[in-house]
Design a protein around this nucleic acid. Structure first.
Lengths: 343, 343
DNA sequence: TTGTAGGCGTTATCAG
DNA sequence: CTGATAACGCCTACAA
């Protein structure tokens, strides 16, 4: 390749400009200096194509200007939406963003949290699908500020952003009830996850609130929050019960369920209304378009990033907990006559 | 909070163990040492909960163990698929992954490439949607190894992974022709992008190859590779021509087109066959399921990561160029009687 | 205003 | 096998 002259440093610039390294640093960082000095330094830096080394600067400053975002599955649309928001906010604040995929593996998450002690980032946003006691223990002794997105038990001193999926389920169920639906099935993801548990509780509470009994046979849980699992969970449910509505733990499951419905000859929304959750792009792209409860993925991402930046600015601040309210987006899949319905 | 004793360093460990910092470093890095020494050091490190500092190590080693992936839009399913693969490969090799979103802005991309001189990563994978002369100039003088995913002109000395979207379009067109379709419309994204231009060429070449004339009125370009633009591009096309098939520049456009078809009363695939490109998850989730040309997003991501790691291991190696072959995934949207069609 | 010198935490070289 | 010491590239008291 080309003859590579050694990478320029403050020393080479200083030598070239005939000044001290201190002056180089000062000029380049905008500290007071005589115009003549400033000019000479700038010229020398220009000629040498000097660029300050980020690692050395980090070592000195004890800050990396890096944050990380750790998530179970990089491909999940909800996380993608959050990531976009986080990327925007952190970039605007001058931070680089690292991405970690944990596969929702408990040990991987714990190791990742502990690895923060290496100091390669200034803070982290974590989205755990399951929160064990080990997690809680580690949360309170992380080496750098941590923001947890998702449910965390009371009293755990960590910045926390959460969705209200219980209320979200209630919005969905109430919407279906007010549309005259009476046999409302529930397609869940893994019930042993934090969101899985919360959504099931929300479903049961929503029915209980209006005095309806909960029929366990109307609930079908899948092994994952995916399209295929939704499809299968729906088929299992149909073997047990006839339904006139389905609430689903997320949009992927809902779309899988709509396929199962189509194959079994049921029309959506005429025979069965369907409501998803997360309000991903998919909801607007599927057919019929999917009524879905937005849990504010973008807002949660933005808020998580802002909390993290806030704590970086003031490390002694009390941990805050923010809940993003859900919002129902009514579309074609949940029957006619509702506000916002298309055609 | 808790009284924070100063962060332990090799010095504190050395003091506690009653040995020199050199010995601490050696033991902790697995270099030869007497068993007694090793034990004392490990105990001291354990007691102090010593963890080596990644930044200091980077400064010394002149490597950050970080790579970055820069992409126009973090939300694009194709990039998400690539990212997953990249994340896997690089993590397995002991690297952390940074994520940059360029918004496909030329200046942002160029600035990002130049910022590599700060040395905050050891290498970068870039997916530019448009490649200008400025890009080419910068490509050959980046401060760290670069892998470009996408078309790059001949002779540019940079590691390069590309899809063959020309051949991909041919697979799509041939498939439709062999299904007896004769009026094949083409819904493109922005024609001034690298993939946009390549797909248009591929469409025209595929028709030309079998002696069919290209009717410009059968081509409709959108302002973006999105669902909404696909929908609109389809409506514009329908105003001009009747078609019995549509090839689309990606899956999002294809799904948008299917909506337009549904609204205009056309049945898929009976009246109009539809083929998408990229073979994203969406293709299996939409209704009817979408025949799509896989451009090997995952494979491209994996290959890009491997090329980068390879160059990191041997910086003097000749730049390689790898083309990932396309593959047609036949599903419901492209008509009956084809291999792989469901039901 | 400018220069000298020390240190951020680590690894590696060189004697002992 | 082990210990003292010099970098890595930068910033910043402190001194001049």
């Amino acid at each position: 390749m080309s003859e590579s002259s050694p990478k320029p440093t403050v020393f080479s610039v200083a030598a070239r400009a005939g000044v001290s390294v201190a002056s180089v640093s000062r000029v380049l960082n905008g500290l007071p200096a005589s115009p003549a000095m400033a000019r000479r330094v700038r010229e020398a830096a220009e000629e040498l194509r000097y660029v300050p080394d980020a690692v050395a600067r980090s070592l000195k400053a004890r800050r990396t200007q890096q944050l990380s975002f750790a998530v179970a599955d990089v491909g999940n649309p909800v996380f993608v939406a959050m990531m976009r928001a986080i990327e925007q906010v952190t970039k605007a604040a001058g931070y680089r963003l690292l991405l970690h995929s944990t596969g929702s593996d408990r040990q991987v998450e714990l190791d990742l949290l502990r690895s923060l002690a290496h100091g390669y980032v200034d803070g982290m946003i974590l989205c755990p699908l399951r929160v064990t006691d080990d997690h809680l223990a580690v949360f309170s002794e992380t080496a750098v500020p941590l923001v947890v997105v998702g449910m965390v038990p009371e009293g755990v001193p960590v910045d926390n952003v959460r969705a209200d999926s219980r209320l979200g389920m209630r919005l969905a169920v109430d919407h279906l009830l007010s549309g005259g639906r009476t046999r409302i099935g529930f397609l869940n993801g893994p019930p042993d996850t934090v969101p899985g548990a919360a959504r099931r509780e929300g479903y049961e509470a929503a029915l209980g609130r209006v005095g309806r009994p909960v029929d366990p046979a109307l609930i079908s849980s899948g092994g994952d929050f995916t399209h295929d699992e939704g499809y299968r969970a729906a088929l299992r449910l149909f073997e047990r019960r006839r339904v006139d509505a389905l609430v689903c733990a997320n949009d992927l499951i809902a779309v899988g369920a709509m396929r199962a419905l189509a194959e079994s000859g049921a029309r959506v929304p005429d025979d069965v209304a369907v409501v998803g959750m997360d309000d991903t792009d998919l909801a607007q792209m599927c057919f019929p378009t999917l009524t879905s409860v937005s849990l504010g993925s973008q807002a949660r991402g933005r808020m998580a990033a802002e909390l993290l930046l806030g704590r970086l600015a003031d490390p002694s601040r009390q941990p805050s907990r923010v809940t993003i309210p859900p919002r129902l987006a009514v579309r074609e899949s949940s029957g006619p006559g509702e506000a916002g319905t298309i055609r």
